[in-house]
Structure formats: C-alpha cells, structure tokens
Design a binder for these strands. Structure first.
Lengths: 198, 198
DNA sequence: AAAAAGTTTTAATCTATATTAAAATAATGC
DNA sequence: GCATTATTTTAATATAGATTAAAACTTTTT
C-alpha cells in the first residue's frame, strides 16, 4: 500500500509538472521558458522541479514522450474501433484531437526535437516515425478497402499531421473553441480523402 | 548611384542573415539558436550581425515580417490570377508553398511570437490576422460563387494554414522532396473544399 | 594615394538562468 | 510523540551567450 500510493502521488505530481511545462513550451519554446516559469505556474520554486526531473532537457523529453503516448493511444483505439480505413482515420482524428483540447491538458508540440540530447532525440524520433507510419498504414488500408481515394500517402500524412501538430499554437484553452475544434476538424481533415465513386 | 548600390548590397546581405536565422530558428527555436550559430553559418563572427540588426529580438522580428510579406505576396498574386474562390485558394497554396521550399530560402515559422517585445508582437499579430482574414475571404468568395462547399471558414482556415505552417518543420532542403510538396500539397489541401454538386 | 565610409574582428562586460548543496518543513509510519 | 521519509525552500555556484567598445581591415570616393 505505501509504495503504491506514494508512487501514484509522485507520478501525479510529475504529470502536473509535465502539463505545466507543455503549456509554457508551446507558447514560448524550449529555451524561451525558464524553469521558474514552469515552477511558478504550479506555485513552486524552480529547484523543486529537480525532485521530479533530472534536468530541463529531461523535462522536455518527458513532455514529448507523453505527447507520443497520447497519440499512440488515440491511434490504437481508432484502429480497434473502426472498420474501414477511412473510419479509422476519422476516429483517430477525433480521439487525438479530443485528447489535445480536453482533460489531458495541454500536450507538448514536438517542435524542438533537435534540442534533445542524442539518446533522447533518437527515442523520440523513433516514436514519431512510428506514429507517421501508423497513420500511413491507415491510409493504405483505406485505399485497399476502397473507402479512401488513392493518394500519395506520405504527403497526405504530412499534411494532416501538420495541421494537428499546429493546433496547440492557436488553441489555448477556450472551451467554446475546443468544442468547435472537436466538432469540425476530423471532418475537415478527412473530407478530402473519401473515395468519390462510392 | 552610390547610395543605391550600397543599399542593395546591405539589404542583400541582411537578407542572407535573415535566411540563415530562419533556418536555425525553424530547427532549434528562438532561444535555442545562438547568434553564433547564425553567424557561423554565414562565415562570420557573432558581433558582425549587429551591423545588420539591432539585437536578437529584432532579428526574429524581421524574420517574421519577411515571412508575412512572402505570404501576403502569394495571396495577392493568387487573388489577381484566379477567377473563382477555389481557384484562388489553389493558386495561393501553390504560390506560397513554392516560395517556402524554393529560391526564397527557408522562411521562418512564426512559432514564437510571444517572445517578441510588445510593439513587435502587435505588429506581427496584425500581419498574421490579416493573412488569416485574407484566406477566409477567399473561402467565402468560393462559397458565394459555388466553387467551394459551405463550411466553417474559421476552422477550415486554421486547419489549412496549420498544415502549411508546419512544412518547415519536416522539409529541410531536399530537392526531390520540394518537388513532391509543390506537386501534391495544393491539391491535398484543397480537395476537401470543392463543392460536390458541380 | 589619402580620406572616408563600410564591414568585420578581438577583447571585455554583464546578466539571466540552469544547476547544486544544505537546510527547513511537512507528512507518514510506528 | 519519535524517527524516517518525502517534499520544498533558501542560498550559493557556474556558465553560456547577448551585448558593447575599440580596433583592424576593406572597399569606395575623390
């Protein structure tokens, strides 16, 4: 019991740290936000953060891993829930976007991977590539099953993922806006994919 | 003659500075890139940059203004050249993307506007909003003339612009890739807009 | 070819902020 | 209530990198 509760409390607190950091990083960039910025946001002083992360670089790294995990979860769920490739894409968009603008709080944009130290950079790039491949696989599936019109999956993936990645740049917690994004984006981003002949 | 040639040489050099800076900023962010990084890229030492810009903040500001100008030019040209709203959108996408991956060298992503000092921030935000409105106006025009299916222009604009803004994050000068982007993106991004009934 | 203007460099300063160390406070188990 | 562990703070250190100043080239002008 002790081990367990302590661990959850610790990791809960750490998650708060990561969310606060994501919020700052999304607005002012990695080096643009000081640890003090993040700490202040949580009502702490900067050195307190070192209780949760080894250093600033690791803080970013963990934010990115968290972002990747959330994206992966959305995709897995979508693949499980959707029948056709098109359905899967639509569900993925919905799930992922719901996470981004919802409860899970701000999710870090992976915009400064180059600033990570080699080991971390490679791990994040790996996750990132995996996510891209996963998305392209959904597109291929849709093309194969006839729900998606043939297209350059690589470029289509880049286009759609870019649009999603950019959301945290202009969305900053406005509730009404969140609803609007969830309601509109999946459709806007997938409308161009559907096979005409069906 | 003297004034003129000197001025062009100066502004040409300054443009090289801005392009080098944009390249660095796009990869490692504002505070993540040192003036030394930028200078080294041009075969200079850091203090030399102060001959072209007042300080680092102004360097970013000028990069952003340059980016805005290029986007504006693309849009103006598109509005001049296209008949229907849909045509204008397509041309704009093509022109803007051609600029981004072409001659004009890397164009800065406006991802750290919050780091600018108030005066500059306001100016850039103004340009940015103007650009967004311009895009939404093209969409409205298309909906009015029947070339574009009715949609939430605000969100559709956010979606498409986000996709474009993200390009410099993954495109880093590969020629073949550039051709592919120019060939595919305009179509990928506008396919979802076209009115079905036509 | 001397003077002036334009451009870049070397050397010196200055500050913000990441990080560490040690101490203090709060919480928990016994 | 005491001892241990967890969490945060205050105080001190260290350094990178922006900025400034003054000097050295370089190019242009006359």
């Amino acid at each position: 019991m002790p081990r367990n509760t302590e661990e959850t409390r610790f990791s809960q607190q750490r998650d708060r740290v990561l969310r606060a950091a994501a919020h700052c990083f999304n607005r002012k960039g990695y080096s643009g936000t000081s640890l003090k910025d993040v700490a202040t946001m949580l009502g702490l002083t900067d050195p307190a953060l070192y209780y949760y992360v080894r250093n600033k670089e690791e803080l970013v790294y963990l934010c990115y891993v968290r972002a990747a995990d959330i994206g992966r979860d959305a995709m897995q769920q979508a693949v499980a829930d959707g029948r056709t490739g098109l359905e899967q894409v639509r569900l993925y968009l919905r799930y992922h976007i719901e996470s981004m603008v919802g409860e899970q709080g701000p999710i870090a944009i992976m915009s400064e991977i180059p600033s990570l130290k080699q080991e971390h950079r490679e791990k994040v790039l790996k996750l990132s590539r995996k996510h891209s491949s996963g998305f392209e696989a959904m597109l291929d599936r849709g093309i194969a099953d006839g729900s998606i019109a043939p297209c350059n999956v690589r470029m289509t993936g880049n286009a759609i993922m870019g649009s999603i990645n950019w959301i945290p740049k202009w969305y900053h917690g406005d509730e009404a806006m969140a609803a609007s994004i969830v309601a509109e984006f999946p459709d806007i981003l997938s409308r161009g994919l559907v096979a005409r002949d069906a």
